[in-house]
Simulated scan of single mutants.
Amino acid sequence: MAGALRRLAHPGPEAVTRIEAVETDLVAVEGHLPAGTSVMEAVAAFFSERGLAGGVLRLSGGACDPYRYVLPALSTDGEHAAWYSATIAPAGGARLIEGTAIVGRRDGVPFLHCHGTWEADGTVRMGHMLPLDSVLTEPVAVSGHASRTALFDATPDAETAFTLFSPLGLTAAAPSRPVDRRGLFLRLRPHEDVAGAIAAACRRHGVGAAEIHGIGSINEVVFEDGRRVSCLATEIAIEHGVVASGPDGPVATLDVAVVDIDGAIHRGRLRPGDNPVGVTFELVLVEPFPEEPA
């Protein structure tokens, strides 16, 4: 199926491993990011205080001023298959509606990758948050799942010429502490169908059911109802995603929000088999609570 899908022309050789996965224990987290620091500083402190390495956070409410973000854009440098717009800085900042942040590290220090929606200049916008340059002026509610023994590590990627998150298990032993769930940290490479790759990872790792959280890009999004976002550069946030058992194994269902290069926001359920990753897709799969013994 992947060979028949739309393909972006990335500059480097294709990596052999197309679906990167790390199994990990997860803890559920919730709380607030306080006003007064950048989003990145607040998230780093939130994870550090709880002894967490990496995971996913859902950000809701609150405000930032300044607020900085970018949109997806076509590449003009002759190297990258897609790129980003110039930085957008709304006057008066922005009020966050909802964001999904994948949390890990870059150059040895905490880092995050966040796509979301917010209100700026009286209009709902969507894009890629710049967390180092966005300063919290009102607290933001957060919830999610995180690991003490795995994270997403940003490293240079020869295939795409971007620096991108990949899941990484940590070798150092972590103190024994309670965990809530089992899960998978995933990175999907270009041209892989998003739903199909998630299902393949679940088969490989014995996951029959899970919540799906994540963000990424798709080369021309196709929805289940036939609508199409005819744009090779997009930013995606999964608003609701689940893995469930089907007649032939795990099936991934993904309801997403999409922003294109013009800033138009689209929503819908992805059509399985017709949504190839553009540059990358980063995911956290969270298995259900284990059943209590009878």
Rank of each mutant, 00 (worst) to 15 (best):
A174E: 10
R105K: 14
E159D: 04
A174F: 00
G196M: 04
H191I: 10
V135A: 04
V142Y: 04
I198P: 00
P139H: 09
W118L: 03
C114E: 07
R181I: 03
A174D: 11
D157Y: 07
R189P: 04
A200S: 09
G92F: 11
E119N: 09
D133F: 13
F185N: 09
A199F: 09
A120C: 11
D133C: 03
A199D: 01
H113Y: 12
A141I: 06
G104P: 12
S176D: 12
I102W: 00
L188V: 03
S166G: 12
V194T: 10
M129S: 07
A158D: 15
L96C: 04
G206R: 06
V124T: 14
V140N: 01
L170A: 14
H115W: 00
P139I: 06
A173V: 13
A91Y: 08
A146R: 02
M126C: 13
F165N: 13
R181Q: 07
T155S: 15
G116P: 03
R148A: 15
P131A: 02
P167A: 08
G93F: 05
T100R: 12
A210G: 09
G93D: 02
S134L: 02
A174G: 13
P139M: 10
T171P: 14
H113W: 12
F152C: 11
S166V: 08
G92V: 04
P178H: 12
A174P: 06
R125L: 01
F185H: 11
G208Y: 01
V135S: 03
R181A: 10
D133S: 10
R189Q: 08
R203T: 09
R125W: 02
R187F: 02
P90M: 02
R125V: 01
L112V: 07
S176A: 15
G169D: 05
H145E: 13
A158Y: 09
G116D: 02
S143Y: 12
H205Y: 07
E98Y: 14
A199P: 02
G196Q: 04
D180A: 08
D121P: 08
I212A: 00
D180S: 10
R106Y: 00
L186E: 15
V135Y: 14
